[in-house]
Write a protein that binds this DNA or RNA. Structure first.
Length: 645
DNA sequence: CTCAGATGCGCC
DNA sequence: AAAGGGCGCATCTGAG
């Protein structure tokens, strides 16, 4: 058994201390038995894996990676590396994987989604019978601002640089275990040390329940989702791409036709090409405002004339006629160009065995929401003419079922403010926006007619359409901290009139004003706000002119955090319960494919239990988190994401 | 060449 | 003092 002993100075609780680290390479069964004897007393174990590229995809995809080996530590002093497949050694230790976890209660990870998925995919044990403590998520709950890498945080907190290892060809399997094991052991050792470092602080900040019982369980669901992937229709994607490219060429021709000022060139095939790059906002600025002399309808963030679709859309005269025919054509061009660049080759390049394995990140946002990447499935266009969503389909023999919470943020806002108008509306099936308009502007609509199923409801809704629109604007503005200044353009009125509308609103619903003021006070006194699950969002003061204060954006973000972050944690709790239900069914009966903030996407076997599962899942979504305002869901079933909404 | 910032745009 | 919260990503641009 190879062994490395090192004494190293690290920062521990603010003091420099000398730690002795011992790192072992497990080479045979007697080494393995020795390791088991060394770890048997502990019920917690830090765990990390090293993997090579599989035949189909990179090591970063747990479904297709190849196991190189894994490392463990039960005390932050000794680390063991258990090799599986390396240039210099190949073992069958996969078969002894489960022995390592005997008598253990908690697994400590740095990025449990990955190592949890690897465990299930490559070691046939998804580790879900144990508690999970993910140090990366702990770190995120304590400090959302800083980077979340293990090495970065080791250097930051322990003031020591972890070993670097250059994987030849980026493939751990092609490296000798004898040269890799010290590096690999360090990952487990430092993961354990980060556990020791974060756990007291987590407790002190009342984040234990959130981290261990909510996040810990939810990460198991995310690991499963990662392995599931989602089926993608490559053939259809190529068809759509062809149409898009053809439409783009036609639009360009039209643009050239109506804008003779654009210089063109002919290539060898005789095709006419514009000499302007329509994707360059800089060149568009010159064209629109210098060459064509169009009026500036909107400025971008840095005060320069905007050339986005919104600016173009405003280039109309008093009779609502376009000031120049290029405007609508450019709007169309931008839409097509966006779809081509984001949803054709970039998507089907990611397909492995017919599926896309994107990432849902549990630590990507300050508000507690999930973020999605590679690709970002949270921003697939909706109702576009090219039907991009239909590219994502259910597996053969399955239906796609999508269920989303209706008006979730407004409901949580109602809970937060305790406003009877909100509670009353949602619990009795009333139209909240019309109810608010009725109270605010004394419309005199009988209360019972506000119920959406009442025969007179539609009549009143149409009659007071404008007032309802005002109320709706301000209800949604509430979620984002919108002021009269921002509300005015939307309501097409002056700032003074908008201010009057806001004042009327707060006069009618004082609870809302109080909730906002309380949040403001919370920020000033504590420097952070917490949502209903204890998740915090922290704020930094700014220094200006000798004064130190929280910027106005902090208030908007703080109030929004309670709502948006509250919804995000409701989703976590709900998905954990849905996942438990799924685990009780026969294998692969139901799969969670992804989630989009207030929506969960499933595929369910297309048999006689499809509707039963659908109803059960929706029941769980509505009833797991009990609030004074009930949660409701809507679902759709189809063969692809376009059909299932 | 790489990289970061700006711009713009898709979604909840 | 700013003037709507939360994201990811394609593309262009200029700097090094």
């Amino acid at each position: 058994m190879k062994k490395i002993i090192k004494n190293q100075q690290i920062n521990w609780n603010g003091e420099t201390k000398t730690f002795q680290f011992t790192k072992y390479l497990i080479e045979n069964d007697s080494d393995f038995d020795f390791m088991l004897s060394k770890i048997k007393e502990s019920n917690k174990i830090a765990f990390d894996t090293e993997n090579g590229n599989g035949e189909k995809d990179s090591a970063l995809n747990p479904k297709f990676a190849r196991p190189a080996g894994f490392s463990i530590s039960v005390n932050g002093k000794e680390g063991f590396y258990i090799p599986i497949e390396h240039k210099d050694i190949k073992t069958n230790f996969q078969k002894r994987f489960n022995e390592i976890f005997e008598n253990k209660k908690m697994i400590i990870f740095w990025n449990s989604i990955y190592d949890g998925a690897i465990s299930e995919s490559l070691y046939n044990n998804n580790l879900s019978n144990y508690k999970w403590y993910d140090c990366m998520i702990a770190q995120h709950l304590l400090d959302a601002f800083q980077s979340k890498g293990l090495k970065y945080n080791t250097e930051r907190y322990f003031k020591i640089k972890q070993l670097k290892h250059n994987f030849e060809k980026k493939d751990a399997c092609q490296v000798n275990a004898s040269s890799l094991f010290e590096y690999a052991c360090d990952d487990a050792i430092y993961t354990y040390l980060h556990y020791l470092r974060t756990k007291e602080e987590i407790k002190k900040q009342n984040l234990s329940n959130l981290l261990l019982n909510i996040e810990g369980e939810f990460l198991k669901v995310l690991a499963k989702i990662k392995l599931n992937g989602i089926a993608f229709d490559i053939e259809l994607a190529k068809q759509i791409e062809e149409t898009l490219l053809k439409d783009k060429e036609n639009i360009i021709k039209e643009i050239i036709k109506v804008t003779p000022q654009i210089k063109t060139s002919k290539n060898l095939l005789g095709e006419v090409k514009p000499l302007i790059n329509l994707n360059s906002s800089q060149e568009l600025t010159k064209l629109l405002y210098d060459t064509l002399n169009l009026p500036v309808t909107k400025e971008n963030k840095s005060g320069k004339p905007a050339v986005d679709s919104e600016a173009l859309n405003l280039m109309k005269d008093n009779f609502n006629e376009w000031l120049h025919p290029i405007c609508p054509l450019l709007i169309k061009y931008k839409e097509i160009q966006k779809l081509i660049s984001a949803y054709t080759h970039t998507l089907y390049d990611k397909v492995v065995d017919g599926r896309i394995y994107g990432d849902l990140k549990d630590h990507g946002t300050e508000s507690g929401r999930l973020s999605a990447e590679n690709p970002n499935l949270q921003q697939l266009p909706k109702n576009d003419t090219y039907q991009i969503r239909s590219l994502f389909k259910s597996s053969p023999g399955y239906k796609m079922m999508v269920s989303d919470f209706g008006q979730e943020e407004l409901r949580v806002a109602g809970v937060l403010t305790g406003s009877p108008a909100f509670k009353d509306s949602f619990n009795q099936g009333k139209d909240l926006h019309l109810k608010v308009a009725n109270d605010c502007y004394n419309l005199g609509i009988p209360e019972e007619c506000l119920v959406e199923t009442h025969p007179q409801y539609k009549v009143y809704k149409d009659k007071f359409d404008k007032q309802r629109f005002y109320a709706k604007s301000i209800n949604f503005g509430l979620l984002y901290g919108r002021t009269a200044y921002g509300l005015a353009p939307q309501l097409k009125c002056s700032v003074e009139e908008a201010q009057k509308i806001v004042d009327d609103y707060f006069k009618t619903f004082p609870d809302v004003r109080i909730a906002i003021d309380n949040t403001n006070r919370e920020i000033k006194v504590k420097g952070y706000v917490s949502n209903m699950f204890g998740r915090r969002r922290r704020f930094n003061k700014i220094e200006k002119g000798g004064k130190s204060f929280y910027p106005p954006s902090a208030l908007r973000e703080g109030f929004n955090h309670k709502i948006q972050g509250g919804c995000a944690d409701i989703l976590r709790v709900v998905m954990v319960e849905v996942h438990k239900y799924i685990m009780k069914q026969p294998k692969d009966q139901i799969r969670i494919l992804t989630t989009i903030h207030d929506e969960i996407v499933f595929e369910i076997k297309d048999d006689n239990r499809l509707m039963e599962h659908t109803k059960q899942i929706n029941y769980i979504m509505q009833n797991t988190v009990k609030l004074p305002i009930k949660l409701e869901t809507d679902f759709d079933i189809g063969n692809n994401y376009g059909e299932a909404k």
